[in-house]
Amino acid sequence: MIETARLAGFFAAHGVWCVSEGETLVPLLGYEHADGEYGMNRMMFDDYAEGARAGQDALEDGDPSWVGAVLVADGYIHLDQGKTDALIVEAVQYGPYRQTMQLAVPYRPAQDERGFAVHKPKFMNADCDDPAFDAVAEAFFVGAASHTEAHAVWDAHLDESV
Rank of each mutant, 00 (worst) to 15 (best):
P131K: 09
R53K: 09
T4D: 13
G15D: 00
D112H: 11
H147Q: 07
M44T: 13
L29Q: 00
T24L: 05
A135Y: 12
G55Y: 04
M101A: 08
F116H: 04
F141Y: 14
M43G: 05
L103W: 00
T24P: 04
A145Y: 03
F116K: 04
A8C: 11
A135C: 06
D47V: 14
A156K: 08
H119T: 07
D127A: 10
Y76W: 09
N125Q: 15
G75H: 05
E60L: 12
S146Q: 07
E50N: 05
V19L: 02
L59Q: 03
V142W: 07
L158A: 13
A34P: 04
E149P: 03
E113M: 11
V92H: 11
S65V: 14
I2M: 12
A145Q: 12
E90V: 03
G51I: 05
D130L: 06
P27W: 01
D47L: 10
H119E: 07
G143Q: 02
D159E: 07
F45A: 12
V19N: 00
H78P: 03
A58I: 00
A144E: 09
V89S: 06
M44Q: 13
V16Y: 01
S146L: 03
M101V: 02
V118L: 07
H14I: 02
R114F: 06
Y48A: 13
L79T: 10
L29I: 01
A69I: 09
H78L: 06
E21S: 00
R42Q: 12
D63F: 13
P109L: 06
E90R: 06
G22F: 03
E32C: 08
M101L: 14
A104Y: 04
D85L: 08
V19F: 01
A150W: 03
P131W: 12
T24D: 06
I88L: 15
M1F: 11
V153G: 02
V89A: 09
P27A: 03
W17A: 00
P121I: 14
R42M: 13
V92S: 02
G55Q: 01
A104L: 01
L103T: 00
T24H: 05
T24F: 04
P106F: 05
V19C: 01
W154S: 01
V70A: 11
S161D: 08
I88R: 11
S146D: 11
Y94R: 09
P27I: 00
